[in-house]
Design a protein around this nucleic acid. Structure first.
Lengths: 157, 157
DNA sequence: ATCTGATTGCAAGTTTGTTTCATCTGGATG
DNA sequence: CATCCAGATGAAACAAACTTGCAATCAGAT
């Protein structure tokens, strides 16, 4: 559905900046890309309307708010009936500790990224999400020892 | 190093808002949490200084900027010598298409999240990152069919 | 050549962010 | 028990940023 809202070099340059720091004043962005502040503002607004910019958010360090553990989970399901897959999607997405959930091809069906305070909390989560779910055949856990690179930045330009 | 910078209920409430939308005016946040705008502003500043807030960024839709494909990669290395692991971390982190990279325990050593425009581009990436790297024993690819939930939000409070 | 639509920069107007300052609170001290 | 002190707060003034209106510009189509 979303044909590429053709972005020119200005838009890309603006996006590159906003993906690093969206508190950068429009005047500063303007100087960086050779455009006036209002021009920058209108382009940003347009990209927000078109959904190019999905959200503006603060990134929080999980460890600093009591969630020092990041875990990857590969989930394999019993049945891939659309009905059941959709239910699984909704179920996973509804859990706050699940910060990312992807439906994937390959040797697994879902990949989750989970943040928890303790392994006990994770253990409790697995019980709720996997063991009590009849459609989950098995799951594999990967505990992150080092968050080498964490972000949602997309290369542009 | 960073003991928990003890955050009170105000801080948590503010964080919850900023993680959803950091363009929310401080006055509005103040009304939501029953605090004046300057109080909110000081708390935000303090959390930024303490690293609780790691960054303020715009989230862009990868598909809208020509990166419709998201891929997970499990990488297994030959040797876990610290020297080689660090080199691998630096190597992966330096690639713009690698938006996330974690060093993990379990049946793999690294998990990468990659965004690309085409499978051809991914194929080229695998050549550069894996086949030409002697320390990569093997890797497994999972292509995302549905980005069910994507974010870096951490539950607070 | 002219028209049209889109984009721009400037300047004015408005909202938001920031600083100042006096006050208040809770805890430690004499 | 009074005092002091450190930290946090709200009201108001202030500064900075965002937003809008408008005339000028440019490219492509007629």
């Amino acid at each position: 559905m979303p044909a590429l809202p053709n972005l020119d070099a200005f838009d890309c340059a603006i996006l590159a900046i906003l993906q690093k720091d969206n508190t950068t004043p429009q005047r500063t962005i303007g100087e960086a890309v050779n455009l006036s502040a209002p021009a920058v503002q209108r382009r940003i607004k347009r990209m927000e309307e078109r959904g190019v910019i999905r959200a503006n958010v603060a990134l929080v360090d999980p460890a600093k708010v009591g969630h020092p553990i990041t875990i990857f989970v590969e989930v394999e399901v019993e049945s891939e009936r659309a009905e059941l897959i959709d239910a699984a999607k909704r179920g996973f997405a509804a859990v706050p500790e699940v910060q990312q959930c992807y439906y994937v091809t390959g040797e697994a069906d879902f990949i989750l990224v989970v943040t928890v305070a303790t392994m006990a909390e994770y253990e409790a989560l697995t019980r709720r999400l996997f063991f009590e779910n009849n459609n989950v055949k098995r799951f594999r856990t990967f505990v992150a020892m080092d968050r080498v690179k964490v972000g949602l930045e997309v290369p542009v330009g």
